[in-house]
Simulated scan of single mutants.
Amino acid sequence: MQLTLDIPEKFFAYQTPKELIRLLKLNTAIDLYRRGKLSAGAAAEFVGDLDRYEFLYECRQHGIEPQTYDNVEELQAEIDNIHAARC
Rank of each mutant, 00 (worst) to 15 (best):
K18G: 03
L56A: 08
R22A: 02
E74R: 09
I82D: 09
P66G: 10
L75Q: 12
R35G: 09
E9C: 05
L20D: 03
R22L: 06
T16P: 02
P17Q: 04
Q76G: 02
Q61D: 11
A77E: 11
Q61K: 15
A43G: 06
K37V: 13
T28W: 02
L56G: 10
E74G: 06
L50V: 08
L20Y: 05
A77W: 04
R60F: 09
S39R: 07
L50P: 02
E54V: 02
R86T: 11
I79W: 08
T16R: 05
T68V: 15
F46R: 05
A44R: 03
M1C: 08
E19N: 08
T28R: 05
L75W: 14
D80G: 02
I7K: 03
L5E: 06
L23S: 11
E9A: 14
E54W: 04
Q2M: 13
T28Y: 03
Q67H: 15
A84E: 15
L23D: 13
L75A: 15
R34C: 03
R22G: 01
I82E: 09
A77S: 13
A84R: 15
I79V: 15
D31M: 05
F11S: 04
K18S: 14
P8R: 12
R34G: 05
E74C: 07
D6V: 06
F55R: 01
T4V: 08
N27S: 07
F46Y: 14
P17W: 01
E74M: 12
F46G: 03
Q61R: 15
F46T: 03
C59W: 04
G48Y: 11
L23M: 05
S39W: 04
G41H: 06
N81G: 14
V72F: 13
T68K: 14
L32N: 01
C87R: 13
L24K: 01
V72Q: 10
A77Y: 04
C59M: 08
N81S: 15
Q2V: 13
G36F: 08
Q2A: 14
R22H: 11
N81R: 15
Q61F: 07
H83S: 08
A77D: 14
N71Y: 09
L38R: 03
L75C: 07
D51N: 15
A40F: 09
L3R: 05
Y69M: 05
K37I: 05
D6K: 11
F55W: 04
L26H: 00
I21G: 01
G41L: 12
H83R: 15
A85I: 06
D31F: 10
P17V: 03
T68Q: 14
F46L: 12
A29Q: 02
H62W: 08
Q76Y: 12
G48F: 09
L32Q: 07
E9D: 15
F12T: 04
E78M: 14
L24N: 02
K10S: 13
N27Y: 10
N81V: 02
P66M: 09
